[in-house]
Amino acid sequence: MGEDTEVCVIGAGPAGLALTLMLLRSGARVTLVERATGFDREFRGEILQPGGQAVLASLGVLDAVRTRGACRLDRFQLVDGDRTLLDIDYRRLPEPHDHLLAVPQRHLLVELLAACREHEGFEYLDGHRVSELLRDGDRYTGAVVTGQGKRAITAKVVVGADGRYSKTRALAGIDAGRHDAFDQDVLWFKLFAPGR
């Protein structure tokens, strides 16, 4: 019996969408499964490092992401009390990626998904959750997803790109080796500049 798809990617975040686009560009058939039905939700990690910008430029989506709205940042400082722990000036890097780029993650996801939809062999199942993995001996051969009904997707490869609390990884019995005990906390928030 043939596969429904060559690669089944679980999770349509930046990693899942970028991988899907790379696979589609190489000619693979990809089914992308995402539990959410849209991109209007809370995100983390809305800063693109220079290397990430280079990857997105090579995928042909960086300019469209910038057009949706982005803010260039030339420096990054990490301060603890009166001590500067990190002071990084990105302008020392070669152009055109000599800066950080603050961009709402939904802008990135919308553009990556639009680029994926331009390729044949792409299927997007939003509003679906992985409920089990299919196996043939010691090899995973697909996933069972639930959305509006239950569907088994057979594939040559299954990729879990569904985040730090990955259901796919848990179903595969893979220990993430997470360490949640740190002596520092990280706080992030958004401030809206007056007049913008």
Rank of each mutant, 00 (worst) to 15 (best):
L78Q: 03
D74M: 11
L48P: 00
V103R: 11
R117H: 11
V79A: 12
A57E: 14
P96G: 00
L59R: 02
L108D: 04
P104M: 07
V61L: 07
L32G: 05
R68S: 14
R68H: 11
Q77H: 10
R91S: 15
Q77C: 14
G81D: 01
E34H: 11
L59A: 03
A115G: 12
A115Y: 03
V65K: 00
V55Y: 10
E42C: 08
T37G: 15
R106G: 05
V55P: 04
Q105K: 03
F39N: 04
L108W: 13
V61S: 05
G52M: 03
R44D: 02
P94F: 03
Q77F: 11
P50V: 00
L56P: 14
Q77L: 15
R75T: 00
R35S: 13
G38P: 04
A57M: 04
L100N: 13
G81C: 03
R83K: 13
A54S: 15
D87I: 05
T31F: 06
G69V: 06
L109F: 05
L86I: 15
L101M: 07
D82R: 13
R68Q: 14
P96S: 00
L62F: 08
A114I: 10
R83L: 10
D80R: 09
C116E: 03
E118R: 09
R92K: 07
E120P: 12
F76T: 13
D89M: 00
A102C: 10
L48Y: 09
V61A: 06
R91H: 08
V33P: 01
H97G: 04
P94K: 06
H107E: 00
R92L: 12
D80V: 12
V61N: 04
C71D: 14
D87S: 09
L86E: 12
G69L: 11
V103F: 09
Y90F: 04
D40K: 06
H99T: 00
T37F: 11
L112N: 01
Q105L: 13
Y90T: 06
D87C: 06
R117Q: 15
L108E: 09
R91V: 12
F39M: 05
L32N: 04
P50C: 02
D87H: 03
L56N: 06
F122N: 02
A36C: 07
A54G: 15
F76P: 03
L101R: 09
G45K: 07
Q105M: 11
A102M: 12
T84C: 15
G45M: 13
R66N: 14
A115M: 08
E120K: 10
L48Q: 03
L78Y: 02
L85D: 01
T67Y: 08
T37D: 12
E95C: 08
Q105A: 15
I47Y: 10
D89R: 09
R117F: 03
L62R: 08
L100W: 06
T37I: 06
A70V: 01
P104Q: 01
Q53Y: 02
D89I: 00
F43I: 03
P94V: 06
G52R: 13
I47T: 14
P96C: 01
H107W: 01
Q49T: 13
E111G: 09
P50I: 00
A115E: 04
E95P: 14
L101K: 09
E118L: 12
L113N: 13
P50L: 01
L48D: 00
D89F: 05
